[in-house]
Design a protein around this nucleic acid. Structure first.
Length: 626
DNA sequence: CGGGCAATAT
DNA sequence: CATATTGCCC
């Protein structure tokens, strides 16, 4: 695909095209690579194209041809024919107002650059931490429209190197145009017949159409720019929820945590709403769905057991007030599912959890396919300067959205199409486990993503650190090869990494949570017989591979029991939502140990890689959830 | 103000 | 269909 072709990508794919202009061949070689590579670290960037051009004049020519295709220009300051700012000026004169970031080892050029209208200034050597800023900036520019930007002359307020516009984060916000609340209120109360029903009936409401140009005031159609909840973005969303805690995760916090420049609280709120619906769906249908899925019935080879199961696990209450309420289910680092589980009902098409829970919410076709069996490469963007100041969170009291005033309301957002929850209250404590499969985070990923770390390592390594300005010192030729991800020890050197996936200062660490004794509550039972059945159903090699133990009935095969039985309990447990280690987990050993002595009750043994190719699993997971 | 949520618009 | 907005309540 040529560069130009890459532009005409589908609307759902966010592509960013960056022009790098630098006379230094090394920068020219490395920076594009870095940018392309690092796209994986940004949840919202689907695709990055980088054009590298050493000659400013040629760059100008390229721009003239591609002007509508370039989202961001990164230019060196010192170049032979013209400097970066001169280039910037010519761009402005001959082409238009395009976002330009000036790069230089000469810090003195920062002020000049910004004064001259550069969108940002980036000092050499370029750090890995700069990359997210770059593409976030590009992203923001693209989303907001290139011509919208202007130089940030306030400078000082921005802590890090790249200066950005405060409004960049807000441009997308659409704002209320109607203030006629009174009218609608009175209308509402009128046909409400004065009865303020306690059931909170919201029936007779009519809402105003959004386009609202009926009256003479065509209040800006406010083209609401829909954001695309890409898998990566959703990953980030989930990550945020994990760290904040499901029960405390409110839009504002999530937003701050995600720290994606263009995201608005409303975006998050909307997504959160949907996510909760999903959770409820899972909770309500949970394992029942699995069991009613196609062919699942064979999971129970013994009718007796099946009936026993149904009799026993047919709670009368929706379970999200019990198993999900009031605590973070995301507390425990360790092995996670990382992969798909399926849900479905007999009436609705089977649904699929893939790496991201979000898949269920979307047409699968909208999203990238994932490497089945491996987690995402997502590494969170670092705290950017953009806008979403992580303020200390005020409202820290416990909240529980799973215990709303009206609890098991099973009508979800999707009711426009079809309601769910028809299955009734046949929920069991399976949902936690399901939830654990939401994440797409690579198990054993204790810190930075491989790439992230690799880049960091690459850049931090004094042998590869590169400071070419004013011109390359021949003795420090960097290794242009990017680190081999597989070989990275993601623990070592973590300490000297100055990159944090995000600002974690406002978030309680998972470690702390564990100390608060949540670990115990982090598990829930599954009937042992079911475990055994499930195990077999999943066609594990043979019984000796079974991980579920029928401790309860005291006659599990000796080997298995000895090996796997959870010592202190009467039941076999499924690990509750095993979360992947938080990125800021600073105790990498913890995970390794945990891995070694992994609690066998961990569901993760079932997972993913091994099962994905299984016919059964495929048949389930390949069905779409909608 | 901001969260939750259902309804409804786009 | 997925996401955004709105109205209403808390």
């Amino acid at each position: 695909m040529t560069f130009a072709e890459s532009l005409h990508n589908k609307s759902s794919v966010l592509s960013i095209n960056i022009l790098v202009v630098d006379d230094d061949p090394v920068i020219l070689e490395v920076l594009p690579k870095m940018l392309v590579k690092s796209k994986y670290r940004d949840p919202s960037v689907m695709e990055i194209k980088v054009i590298a051009e050493e000659d400013p004049v040629k760059a100008l020519a390229i721009l003239k041809l591609q002007r509508n295709n370039i989202d961001l220009i990164i230019t060196d300051y010192y170049m032979p024919s013209m400097n970066g700012l001169q280039l910037k000026r010519r761009i402005t004169e001959e082409i238009g107002n395009l976002p330009v970031i000036v790069v230089s080892a000469d810090a003195n050029k920062e002020q000049e650059s910004l004064t001259c209208g550069a969108l940002g200034f980036l000092p050499k050597p370029i750090q890995a931490t700069d990359l997210p800023k770059i593409y976030q900036l590009a992203l923001t520019c693209k989303r907001n429209g290139k011509s919208n930007y202007k130089a940030d002359d306030t400078g000082a307020s921005v802590p890090q190197q790249i200066k950005m516009l405060p409004e960049q984060a807000n441009v997308l916000k659409t704002r209320k145009k109607y203030s006629s609340k009174a009218a609608s209120r009175s209308l509402n109360s009128t046909n409400g017949s004065g009865l303020i029903s306690t059931d909170g009936s919201r029936k007779n409401r009519k809402r105003k159409p959004n386009g609202g140009s009926e009256d003479g005031a065509p209040s800006q159609p406010s083209k609401k720019t829909k954001i695309s909840w890409t898998d990566g973005l959703n990953d980030l969303f989930l990550q945020a929820i994990r760290h904040i805690g499901l029960d405390k995760a409110v839009p504002k916090k999530i937003l701050a945590f995600m720290n994606v420049p263009y995201l608005t609280r409303e975006n998050v709120a909307s997504h959160l709403q949907k996510y909760r619906i999903f959770l409820r769906k899972v909770a309500d249908q949970g394992l029942m769905s699995i069991m009613s899925a196609r062919g699942i019935d064979s999971m129970f080879r013994h009718t007796q057991i099946k009936e026993s199961y149904f009799n026993r696990y047919t709670p009368s209450t929706s379970l999200y007030d019990t198993s999900l309420n009031n605590r973070s289910i995301y507390s425990k680092p360790g092995q996670g599912f990382g992969q798909s589980r399926l849900l479905s009902t007999t009436r609705e098409p089977p649904v699929r959890f893939n790496q991201m829970p979000y898949n269920y919410m979307n047409r699968s076709s909208t999203y990238e396919t994932h490497h089945v069996g491996s987690g995402s490469n997502l590494t969170l963007p670092i705290q950017s300067n953009l806008s979403l100041a992580n303020q200390p969170f005020q409202n820290e009291e416990l909240r529980s959205f799973f215990k709303p005033p009206v609890m098991a309301n099973k009508i979800g957002q999707t009711s426009q199409v079809h309601g769910f929850g028809q299955l009734g209250p046949l929920a069991i404590n399976f949902n936690n486990n399901m939830m654990s499969s939401f994440g797409s985070f690579t198990p054993n990923q204790p810190g930075l993503g491989h790439f992230s770390y690799g880049m960091q390592s690459f850049l931090n390594n004094e042998n590869t650190a590169y400071n070419p300005e004013p011109h390359a010192n021949a003795t420090t030729q960097p290794n242009l090869e990017l680190p081999q991800l597989e070989d990275l020890n993601i623990h070592s050197g973590l300490g000297k990494t100055n990159e944090l996936p995000y600002n974690t200062s406002n978030f309680q660490s998972d470690h702390n949570k564990q100390q608060q004794g949540e670990e115990a509550s982090n598990k829930f039972e599954l009937p042992s017989f079911f475990s055994a059945e499930l195990n077999q159903f999943l066609s594990l090699e043979d019984d000796s591979d079974c991980t579920f133990v029928n401790v309860n009935e005291g006659h599990s095969s000796g080997e298995i029991a000895n090996t796997f039985a959870a010592p202190e309990t009467n039941h076999s447990y499924f690990a509750a939502p095993e979360m992947n280690p938080p990125s800021f987990n600073t105790n990498p050993n913890q995970n390794q140990e945990q891995d070694a002595n992994r609690d066998i009750s961990d569901w993760s043994f079932l997972d993913p890689q091994d099962l994905v190719d299984d016919d059964f699993m495929n048949s389930l997971f390949n069905n779409d959830m909608n």
